[in-house]
Amino acid sequence: MRAIAPGLFTDEPQPRLVGGRHRDSGRIVFPCPPGNDYEPHPLRRDGTLWSWTIQRYRPKSPPYAGPEAFAPWPVGYVELAGETIVEARLANVAFADVHIGMPLELTFIPLDPAAAEPVMIHAFQPAGARA
């Protein structure tokens, strides 16, 4: 898998997001900040939806590096119990079915679905959903 940034996902059959754990306080954040205060901490793959919206227009470039072609996407915050609440796109779900509290699991989607070797970004989908 071609990740959008090195060190953002773990290198394992079911990759996880790499958060950071504060060495003194134990606070967990995402992504793992540079420097020595935080150590890399892979985050759990399951969570529940904390809030959401639909991105209805193509973001400005720069900084957006996705394709010119645009279709609205859901994006929200997912609470990973005992860890942190991460911002992520939602995938494989109808807009009308998105609701706060829904169980979700980590997945990966291409930034440009039409690309031959797409860069992959993280997203969450309904638990048990299939692409």
Partner: peptide
Amino acid sequence: WYGDAGYMITTQFFANKIT
């Protein structure tokens, strides 16, 4: 990557907050 992936958008934040 945060900007590359389309998260660098103020409207997204405001909408998430009110939802």
